[in-house]
Amino acid sequence: MRTLRLEIWVGLGVILALSVVSLGVGVIKLSWEQAFSDPEALRVLIVIRLPRTLAVLITGAVLAMAGIILQAIVRNRFVEPMTTGTGQGAALGILLATILIPTAPLILRMGLAATTALAASLGFLAIVRRLPVTQPLLVPLVGLIYGALLGAVSVFFAYQFDLQQSIAIWTTGEFSGVLKGRYELLWLAALAGGLVYLIADQLAIIGMGQTMATGLGVNYWQIMAAGLLVISLVTALTVVTVGMIPFVGLVVPNIISRRYGDNLRQTLPLVALTGAGLVLISDILGRILRFPFEIPVGSVFGVIGAVFFLMILYSRSRSAY
C-alpha cells in the first residue's frame, strides 16, 4: 500500500500559502514590513488576522473529519453532521442554554450544546436503522428533513424568547467575528480531531458493518459511541464559535475517498487538510468578492458544495452508490 506522504506535504504547502494570503486580506491594509515595524499593524495581525486564519483552518479540518466519521457510522456517503440534525441539535442546545442558564460559564453552555447535538445524532441513527439498505438516497433525504425539523424547533423557541438574531448567528457560518480570546474553544475541537486518528482503523472497520466489525474483533458499539461523541463535540464547538457551515463534511470526504479509497488511517490527514484548505479558500473569496463587505463563508461554501454534490450524485449514477 502506497502512503500518501507526498500528497500531505503538498497539502501542507498549499495551506501555508493560503494562510499567508489570508493574513494579508482585510479592511486594514497591511504589508510585511509594517508587520515588523508598526506595532498597530502587528496587533491587527495577532488579534484579528491570525486567530481568524487559525479558526478557519481548524473548522475546515474538523468538519471534514466529522463528515467522514458520520459516513462510516451510517455507512452512507451522502450524509454529514451539519445537514442531518447534529448541527441543528447543537444550535438548539446553545439556544436552550441561553434561555435557561444564561449566566453559566461558556464551557457549561457548550456542554449542553454538545449534549443536544449528541442526542440529535442518536435520533438520526435510530431513524436510519429503520430505513431499507436498498434505498441509499433515502438516508440523506430523511436526514435533511430531520435537520430542518430540528431547525424549526429552534426557530420556534427563538421567536418566543426574542432570540432570532442569535439563531441567525449560529446558523450562518461566518468568521468575521473571530478575535483573539473568542475562538480558543476551537482548539478543543482540533484536539478531538487529532484523537480520532488513534481509532482510524477501527472506524474504517465499522464502516464495513457490524458483522464485519465483530468478526474482526472490533467493539462495534464502543467505537461507534466514540465516533459519535467526537462528531457531536466538534459540531457543537463550531456551531457555537463560528456558526453552521454546510457541505464541508460531505464534499471533502467524497473527493478524497473517490481518489484514495477508504483506508482512514491513510486518508484522514488528507481529509483534514483538504477541508481546511477549501474552507480557507471560501473564506478568502467571501472577503474579497464584495470588498469591503463580507459574504459569510457558509453561503460561499453552500454554493460550491451544492454544485459539487450534484456532480457526485450524477457521476455516480452508473455505478453503485
Partner: peptide
C-alpha cells in the same frame, strides 16, 4: 430517473438556491 435521486436533486437545488440568494443578498 431514479425517484430518490430526483428528490435529492430537488432538495440540494433548494439549498443551492437559498445559498445563492443569501450570497446575492450580501452583494
Amino acid at each position: 430517473q431514479d425517484l430518490f435521486r430526483m428528490i435529492l436533486t430537488g432538495v440540494i437545488l433548494a439549498t443551492l438556491f437559498r445559498s445563492l440568494t443569501s450570497f446575492l443578498q450580501r452583494i
